[in-house]
Design a protein around this nucleic acid. Structure first.
Length: 280
DNA sequence: CAAGAATCCTGTCAGC
DNA sequence: TGCTGACAGGATTCTT
């Protein structure tokens, strides 16, 4: 499910409901996620008060008053359940269940178990091995044309793959890379080293605008919902190319060669959607 | 060293 | 209806 806009949406949902709450009960049902859960996770959660939240790339950090932060990654199929306690059956694949002092239930649900949860001291969050190597946040002012250009200079990998590399820029995934490249008119096949300059000047604002609009829409929902209140994000309706193989390119006049509509190719094992006429 | 493939796991959907 | 294969929002680890 989750790229940066979805993770941001989920984090805001958790924040609204959990900030200030005391966690009364925690149950780990399956510890074998992407990495084994900390053996003392339930113990660390129980009795702690939630003080604040933060998002870094596709990770959620939930800070506790005990000085520990809970690091959450939703992987490919993870989502957070948030609902009042009471006569709710345990959801399938609900690996962690937490109850708050004001009667809410928080569930970590992840069928494919590519997600992970870990503990890290709050004042050392960024030293966590999963966060330490991450590149800049794309929505920070620090993520500039100069910074991206420097990161891409000399690279021979396609720009599509480079933007999925979380050490170059942190938080983009397959959907938003396709959308940002379409928006900036850059071919996903173009080598990353040829981006610095005029193309980077288009690409950086395209990335920022794509993400900002997606967050405003509550992210994109595919098969499952992204928001903790159970509502669907609706940015999937705004996709220009992702998942639209064979459809007319929304930027090209009809039948304008060489536009053959939205094409799907595979790069580094992942689908890329683009228009050969608009993007070069 | 860097780029691509294989890998983890379950669910869903298209096609036969 | 049921089976099979392709594919899925990620990211590490293994091979070339």
């Amino acid at each position: 499910m989750p790229e940066l806009p979805e993770v941001e949406t989920v984090m805001r949902g958790l924040q609204a409901r959990l900030e200030g709450r005391i966690l009364r009960r925690a149950v780990v049902r399956r510890p074998d996620l992407r990495w084994p859960l900390p053996v003392n996770l339930a113990e660390r959660l129980t009795g702690a008060r939630v003080t604040s939240f933060r998002r870094r790339a596709k990770y959620i950090l939930m800070r506790l008053d005990s000085g520990w932060s809970v690091l959450i990654h939703l992987g490919m199929s993870g989502r957070m359940l948030l609902e009042p306690i009471g006569r709710n059956d345990i959801t399938l694949h609900e690996h962690i269940e937490i109850e708050t002092d004001d009667g809410w239930r928080v569930g970590f649900v992840d069928p494919r178990r590519f997600g992970s949860v870990d503990l890290i001291e709050t004042d050392r969050e960024d030293e966590h091995r999963l966060l330490a190597g991450l590149g800049p946040e794309p929505l920070d002012d620090a993520f500039s044309v100069a910074l991206l250009s420097a990161a891409l200079a000399g690279k021979k990998t396609p720009i599509k793959s480079a933007l999925l590399d979380q050490t170059i820029v942190a938080g983009l995934g397959n959907i938003y890379v396709c959308e940002a490249l379409f928006r900036s008119g850059i071919s996903p096949l173009r080598l990353a080293g040829t981006i610095p300059g005029a193309r980077a000047k288009r690409l950086v604002p395209a990335i920022k605008a794509t993400l900002t609009e997606a967050i405003a829409a509550g992210g994109s929902s595919l098969r499952d919902y992204v928001q903790t209140n159970g509502e669907l994000g609706y940015f999937q309706h705004a996709w220009k190319v992702y998942g639209r193989e064979g459809e007319p390119c929304p930027a090209c006049p009809e039948q304008s060669l060489p536009c053959a509509g939205v094409q799907r190719i595979v790069q580094a094992g992942r689908s890329t959607f683009y228009c050969v006429r608009k993007q070069h």
